[in-house]
């Protein structure tokens, strides 16, 4: 969708504003919310594997390490099938399914978590995925390194998707920080903060780097959640910010996070 491929233009707009102002770190005096809520990341997929669910407690500050929830009872249900998830003691807060499985499409799945006498439930269907668009790699002329120029269009009228891009150059430069994980989204809605996104970190990597790109198909509800997540995170902090508010979870009992299932496509690229 060419209409929103306007990075050159927007860099000019940013240039204008940077000529006048500046952004810097601040020691913000956060107001205490005392939330103490469960934060659940439950993204199941149609990949045949041990599926993963993460459960942590919310934090007061963004720099805090979240407290892992290690004693919850976690299960998913579909029709008459129940699959339990077991806590991995080597990775606090992470629960893996007892068996490897793939989530079939066209079914409804329920999540049930029991923790300290409270029950947290959610249900979802499976989001369908369309083919992965080609990843665009740019070249840093000064260092001859490469960077990800574009993962996908922000807008598509026909599909909604999440992209997870794992960049690994550990085999080429094992002695430096050598891995990166990027996210991108495609939605069927148009947001000014999505069109004019704030500047983010540019990850440079050498030729020969391995990139594993995964595309997750989204249900309409999960796309709404991720759109809100993008507005609150990667699209926040530009010149056209929107009024902020909490994300709406589909998990009951005031839990945070989201339970969903996605069809996933994967592609591996060796950067030339």
């Amino acid at each position: 969708m060419e209409i929103f491929r306007m990075n050159q233009y927007w860099s000019l707009v940013v240039l204008i504003f940077l000529s006048f102002g500046c952004e810097e770190k601040t020691d913000w005096d956060y107001q205490s919310g005392d939330h103490q809520q469960l934060a659940i990341t439950a993204i199941l997929s149609d990949e045949f594997k041990f599926q993963k669910i993460e459960i942590f407690q919310s934090m007061n500050l963004p720099s805090e390490d979240p407290i892992a929830i290690t004693n919850a009872t976690v299960a998913i249900k579909s029709m008459n099938n129940v699959i339990e998830f077991i806590h991995d003691n080597n990775q606090p807060g992470i629960y893996y399914s007892q068996i490897a499985f793939s989530v079939p499409s066209n079914i409804n799945i329920q999540l049930e978590i029991l923790h300290e006498g409270q029950t947290y439930v959610a249900s979802t269907s499976v989001g369908k995925v369309a083919p992965i668009p080609p990843l665009q790699i740019g070249t840093n002329q000064a260092t001859d390194e490469r960077f990800v120029a574009k993962i996908a269009d922000v807008y598509s009228p026909v599909e909604q998707a999440m992209y997870e891009v794992l960049i690994d150059w550990s085999e080429i430069r094992p002695d430096t920080f050598n891995q990166a994980l990027l996210y991108a989204f495609t939605f069927n809605t148009v947001d000014i903060s999505g069109i004019i996104q704030p500047n983010d970190e540019v990850i440079n990597f050498p030729v020969g780097t391995t990139i594993i790109e995964k595309k997750f198909g989204l249900t309409s509800d999960y796309a709404d959640f991720l759109r809100a997540l993008a507005i609150e995170t990667s699209w926040q902090g530009g010149f056209f910010d929107e009024s902020q508010s909490s994300l709406k979870s589909n998990i009951s009992n005031n839990a945070l996070g989201y339970f969903t299932a996605c069809q996933v496509l994967s592609d591996t690229i060796i950067v030339q």
Partner: peptide
């Protein structure tokens, strides 16, 4: 304006919670 009163992690991202 609305400032966060807490945060949580979801799929590697730090998400603000607003009061």
């Amino acid at each position: 304006f609305s400032s966060p009163t807490g945060f949580y992690e979801y799929n590697n991202k730090v998400i603000p919670i607003f009061g």
